[in-house]
Design a protein around this nucleic acid. Structure first.
Lengths: 171, 171
DNA sequence: TATCTTAACTTGCATATTGCAAGTTGTCAG
DNA sequence: CTGACAACTTGCAATATGCAAGTTAAGATA
């Protein structure tokens, strides 16, 4: 054996552990799309353009790592499975925010395409430049996950609510 | 050719672009250590345990991507090069914060080792649980990069100041 | 001067990961 | 009974990674 076991989540440094779990190729992109509501194999495959054997492998590993839950559902009378964010998977949101902000600031889209924005539902206002924040630029309140909408104009003008973690907490 | 060209930084989604640039294996760990002051090939190699051909490749690619600057320096009368964070490389700090927070919350160190903390120099207080923040938990002020110290007790009890981006801005 | 050492690479080769294409399985629609 | 489809699995070729060893340039040592 030569390459070290991937996905090692041990060690004293929390950054190293995080990279070991969510730093694999595709993993953050799968989490991004799951955050935007994607749950099914075929949807991930076509949205991401990932090879299906790799997707299969990644989803299984992410379930094992506790990022996604594989939950059965019925389509007609047929049992299928979908992949839903767990708390740990949903907890990657601040990482996605930070990546979005860095990407907006330090990379350029090929075409001049309109930026991604985050809308705070209660006040209806979007983030300013610099990307999504934990706190609303407009009303100053912390943005709760279920009050957060993403606008990705290159896909659709409609704001997209974020997927809530599974199992859904009653509160 | 089969595997798609890695490190593609184009496309409309800023998260996808960010992952294309800083999402490669080792890249975030190199940036973490560079943020903590590492600048030299040999130091990265021994700190990270990365194979030297891979390190050579990554550093070159990171220079090309504008994350690091290769700057000559003299050791005695001899000219060497070191790798210093650029603005773009230093700008990854919020991603490292988010990863650290996620890692603390959702992964476990093998041994029970003391957590990483961030200290705000002006007020001398460390972040509470949940990991590093953009704003000081104690005094409420935004934490400027040059007022931020990391404490990584498994390496040393001493707080480590963060490397400043190169070229250093006069202000 | 000759040899040693070190940082920073480069090269060769074995192993691991990724991607593509094609095959498989279990429904369901017609 | 014949597709069609989602969700995989398998085989194979192309890349990436890791290890070990070689290279280069200059400073240190003898």
């Amino acid at each position: 054996m030569t390459a070290r076991p991937r996905g090692k989540a041990t060690g004293p440094c929390p950054i190293g552990r995080a990279v070991g779990v969510i730093g694999e190729r595709w993993t953050l992109l799968i989490l991004r799309n799951a955050t935007l509501g994607t749950t099914r194999f075929e949807a991930f495959r076509s949205e991401l353009g990932i090879a299906d054997n790799i997707l299969s492998d990644r989803l299984a590993r992410m379930v094992e790592a506790g990022l996604l839950a594989r939950v059965p559902y019925t389509e007609g009378r047929r049992v299928r499975h979908e992949y839903r964010l767990t708390d740990a998977g949903a907890g990657v949101l601040p990482v996605l925010h930070a990546l979005a902000a860095w990407g907006e600031e330090h990379t350029r889209a090929g075409e001049s395409s309109p930026s991604m924005r985050v809308v705070h539902r209660p006040c209806g206002h979007a983030t300013g430049p610099g990307g999504p924040r934990a706190t609303c630029d407009h009303c100053g309140q912390p943005i709760r996950r279920d009050d957060e909408l993403w606008v990705r104009p290159w896909r659709s003008p409609d704001p997209i609510p974020l997927a809530q973690p599974f199992p859904w907490k009653s509160r």
